[in-house]
Design a protein around this nucleic acid. Structure first.
Length: 604
DNA sequence: GCCGTTTTCGGCCCGACTGTTTTCAGTCG
């Protein structure tokens, strides 16, 4: 067990990220409840409690952190037991936490071990056993006293600590302040793809893929996982270790290599014989929660799954799969798309034949949120339109900012009228793509919409977004969002929570109220595909779908390359279980227009 | 501590790698 950096989405409602990526939040926010249970789990591992008891608290912390509605509210309504991993003991502790602000069990452990010991467990190679031995044999309580013990050599008095451990720990302590937090999908993926091509070119390699969180299209990753099939795994690992992108080798075995890249990312490579490649790919794709659930199911059906085989428990007969779907089909399951592998009902759906047919990039026919140099874009409308057409899009909507956006970037009503004329003129000269008139209009801090209704009504598609007043209370934010939902000329809410991954927390959106309101007023919710936003997030997109709201996947492109961001938005949508029918811009333009017409005439 | 197509007790995913070990514990994903 390690102190969590969490399997969770890095930013949820109500969370605040410091520069280090740690989470702080209001007293009863899910982030704060999760933090308490995480600390309890860490303390229990330090105490030497049963790993299963410790894991139970760990799972509860993960569940709470990932849950999209208020855990505190569920607890007070008596519905907390509906969540997985919550039983009597954990329910009682959540209620205690909500009532008193703390938990007795946690306070007792705090009295026994300094809280700073937990931060030692964040060092690579330091788990609960080592942390406790450091504390009890030489009195190390935090990073400062650990550094001292390394320097003076006191460290060597600790059983199990030799010179190599001393060197590793020294390095780890020094690297901790600069250790990279989770990196953005759009930053990690290009590096991973480049290395994947290099890996495939190595002698003996018959197949290779990206695995891990990147294959599941998570918005952020802690490292890169690659897998390969090779007729000579040792030689493949050797060849990879000397690639120019590799800065240093951290681990090296017969099937596994862990390296640091010059970019600062870490990379894990696993290599097996081609006959077991499907087993390895399944194993390495994860998530951990998915694999745990899958293996539990396998046990019930008389199998034992590893990265090499699926073994029949009674006979010992081993099944090896060169293709990943073999693992699933042996268990009676349909192949599960990687984006769904989070133990959120996908195994049950695969068993029952009810997996969704997930949205594909090719399903997108248009892009309803595009900028140009009329506001803060970096290319003219013609250049943007041609780039979109070249990618196969049938229609795009120019959604430049309205006047109130800072620094004179946004358009006045008169400028919007001029742009409408310019779009129509350009549209008449271009074949193969239709250009729609639109705006990304500000929802002002007082709830007013930044352009007059008589102008909005002239536009094909109106997206309304919050770009100011981020620190307002939930009531104020919701008053603004509700004003936009109720405005009959507003078609969509842009980047609805305002989060900037690893940089800025979402504003205080009541997401349940938002998705209900969106469904009721037929207002579309955007999945903004920019990889630092991915907003709505996948869990919220799934809530929106379940509430009956319609979504878009939009690039928010500010230059011609920006349209390639759509694939990140599609990944987030797939993680949210969305199908093509849930996304407006999969539809032909005539159907889009008809849908909007009906919505606007229905009055909200 | 949780959980149930082995159902209220007895399990809980499974293996790789490192370092300090004389046969394995601890960490990690």
């Amino acid at each position: 067990m390690r102190p969590a950096e969490g399997s969770a989405e890095p930013l949820g409602v109500g969370e605040v990220h410091s520069a280090r990526g740690d989470v702080a939040a209001g007293p009863s926010s899910n982030a704060e409840v999760a933090r308490h249970f995480q600390m309890l789990a860490d303390y229990l591992s330090l105490e030497g409690a049963s790993v299963y008891r410790t894991l139970a608290y760990q799972r509860a912390a993960d569940t709470f952190r990932d849950h999209s509605t208020s855990v505190a509210r569920l607890a007070t309504e008596g519905r907390l037991r509906d969540l997985p991993a919550v039983g009597d003991a954990i329910e009682a502790k959540v209620l205690e936490l909500v009532d008193t602000g703390t938990m007795r069990a946690l306070e007792e452990l705090r009295a026994r071990f300094p809280e700073t010991l937990l931060e030692l467990m964040r060092l690579p190679g330091v788990g609960p056993k080592t942390a406790r031995r450091l504390y009890e044999t030489i009195g190390v309580t935090d990073l400062g006293t650990l550094r001292l013990a390394i320097d003076t050599g006191d460290l060597l008095k600790v059983p199990g600590m030799g010179e190599k451990s001393r060197g590793r720990l020294r390095q780890a302590v020094e690297a901790l302040p600069t250790r990279p937090e989770r990196s953005l999908l759009g930053v990690v993926e290009p590096q991973a793809v480049a290395l994947l091509h290099a890996l495939r070119a190595l002698p003996g390699v018959t197949a290779a893929d990206v695995a891990g969180s990147l294959r599941r299209r998570r918005s952020t990753s802690r490292d890169v996982d690659l897998v390969a099939a090779s007729t000579d795994p040792e030689q493949t690992l050797e060849g990879f270790a000397v690639m120019p992108e590799v800065a240093g080798v951290a681990e090296r075995g017969g099937t596994k290599l862990v390296v640091g890249l010059h970019s600062g990312l870490n990379l894990d490579l696993r290599v097996v014989a081609p006959a077991s490649y499907g087993d390895l790919l399944q194993h390495s794709t994860g998530s951990a929660a998915h694999n745990v659930a899958l293996r539990a199911l396998a046990q019930k059906r008389g199998f034992k799954i590893s990265e090499y085989t699926v073994e029949e428990t009674t006979t010992g007969r081993a099944h090896r799969f060169a293709e990943e779907d073999g693992v699933y089909s042996l268990l009676g399951l349909a192949w599960i798309p990687p984006e769904l592998r989070e133990d959120r009902g996908e195994i049950q759906a695969a068993a029952g034949g009810s997996l969704p047919r997930l949205l594909e990039l090719d399903d997108l026919r248009g892009d309803l949120h595009v900028h140009s140099d009329w506001s803060d874009g970096r290319a003219g409308m013609r250049e943007m339109a041609i780039a979109a057409r070249d990618l196969g899009l049938e229609y795009i909507c120019f959604s430049d900012h309205s006047q109130s956006l800072g620094m004179g970037v946004g358009l006045t009503p008169d400028q919007v009228r001029s742009q409408i004329a310019a779009i129509r003129e350009l549209d008449a000269t271009l074949d193969g793509i239709t250009l729609l008139t639109g705006t990304e209009v500000d929802i002002l801090a007082d709830g007013r919409i930044d352009l007059p209704d008589d102008l909005l009504v002239e536009l094909d598609f109106v997206t309304a977004s919050i770009h100011s007043g981020f620190s307002q209370s939930s009531e104020q934010i919701m008053r603004r969002l509700n004003a936009a939902l109720e405005n009959p000329h507003v078609d969509a809410i842009g980047h609805p929570t305002g989060r900037l991954l690893t940089r800025r927390a979402p504003y205080e959106v009541d997401i349940e109220a938002l998705v209900r309101g969106a469904a009721r007023t037929r207002t579309i919710l955007e999945i903004n595909a920019a990889y630092h936003r991915l907003d709505l997030s996948a869990p919220h997109a799934r809530m929106a779908k379940d509430a009956g709201a319609l979504l878009t996947v939009s690039s928010d492109a500010h230059d011609p390359l920006g349209f390639t961001l759509l694939r990140y938005g599609v990944g987030e949508a797939r993680r949210g279980w969305l199908e093509a029918s849930d996304v407006l811009n999969t539809r032909p333009l005539a159907e889009v227009r008809a849908w909007l017409e009906t919505s606007r005439s229905s009055g909200s």
